[in-house]
């Protein structure tokens, strides 16, 4: 706005006195060019040795990538990830609010929850839920009873284990976000006569979102990969299906390649989504926006620039 108006006192004729743009020779980073060449050569050698390996039948990989049971497994992995993240985030917010509450009972219960579910491996929790029938043969209240083995199917066991475990981590993420909001916000809300619940829902949690979003993206990407653990209870996810084919056809490495391919596709999509979500929530606030991997790579390829300095 003010760039086209000269500050007062500028000598007349300044506009005509063109200052010559500096044409300097930029510092050359020869070391980077050399190391780039070395890295490229090594990468090429690795790709060549994998691509031409006689023990790896690429045609098997290609045939199985869109095989029907693999795609069904992929769908189970996606459903498991989405459902456990949705449940985990919802329960995590509840646990975080309990943890921050002045009510000592709620605070202790949530502390214990986080201690328990974060303190034991998710694989152990998965096996415990799957084998629930061994120590709770029936589940229910009063006359409403069900056989645990009928109720806890592999998919349900997997979902319970992943969601309850995730809630413990999400609770800590949300708690950090809430603590990052200026206490003056809650004070102003209280001074207006809003209750603690209203203050949390309307004022504090919405502003905690910006801090909470990036780690939640990381949690989602981690969850995509953690779902592969449900192989041990045979919940029918991507890795369960590819492993079954591998055992039948003796194509272990080929099927692991298939699984890796799909996991990479899923995590790439999730990273892309996280990048855009972060940009959206960073709007209106000071600070630089994160660059996508693509932007960074392009920027690094331009001569004379270092470390994704895209401007």
């Amino acid at each position: 706005m003010s760039s086209d108006t000269h500050p007062g006192g500028a000598p007349a004729g300044t506009a005509e006195r063109d200052s010559e743009p500096i044409k300097a020779i930029p510092v050359r980073h020869w070391g980077q060019w050399v190391s780039a060449a070395v890295v490229l050569a090594l990468a090429a050698a690795l790709v060549y040795s994998v691509a031409t390996n006689d023990n790896l039948q690429w045609s098997v990989v290609g045939d199985n990538i869109t095989e029907e049971s693999v795609l069904r497994g992929l769908w189970v992995t996606i459903r498991l990830t989405v459902l456990s993240m949705v449940l985990g985030i919802a329960l995590g917010i509840v646990v975080a609010v309990m943890r921050l509450s002045s009510n000592k009972v709620l605070g202790t219960v949530s502390w214990f929850y986080i201690w328990l579910f974060r303190g034991t491996p998710v694989l152990v929790q998965l096996l415990l839920w799957f084998n629930l029938g061994l120590f709770f043969p029936t589940i229910g209240l009063g006359s409403l009873n069900a056989d645990a083995n009928d109720l806890i199917k592999p998919f349900i066991a997997a979902l319970l284990a992943l969601a309850l475990n995730e809630a413990a981590y999400m609770a800590e993420v949300v708690r950090a976000g809430v603590l990052a909001v200026d206490p003056g916000q809650a004070e102003a809300s209280h001074a207006l006569g809003m209750t603690k619940g209203q203050t949390m829902r309307r004022i504090v949690l919405p502003q905690a979102m910006r801090v909470v979003i990036p780690p939640t993206g990381n949690e989602t990407i981690t969850m995509l990969k953690t779902t592969s653990l449900v192989l041990v209870v045979g919940a029918g996810d991507l890795l369960t299906r590819t492993s079954a084919i591998a055992a039948r056809e003796f194509t272990t490495i080929e099927m692991l390649m298939v699984a890796s391919f799909w996991y990479l596709v899923l995590t790439s999509i999730a990273s892309y989504g996280q990048y855009h979500l972060e940009r959206r929530f960073a709007r209106g606030s000071a600070g630089t926006l994160p660059h996508s991997l693509g932007q960074r790579t392009l920027a690094n390829l331009r001569p004379g620039r270092v470390h994704g300095d895209a401007r």
């Binding site: 003056g184 004070e187 102003a188 809300s189 209280h190 207006l192 006569g193 502003q207």
Partner: peptide, 18 residues
């Protein structure tokens, strides 16, 4: 909270909801 409804407060650091 009900008592506070009738008392307005203005803070040094404004504390507007961001």
């Amino acid at each position: 909270a009900a008592h506070r409804r009738d008392i307005g407060m203005v803070f040094q650091r404004f504390n507007l909801f961001g």
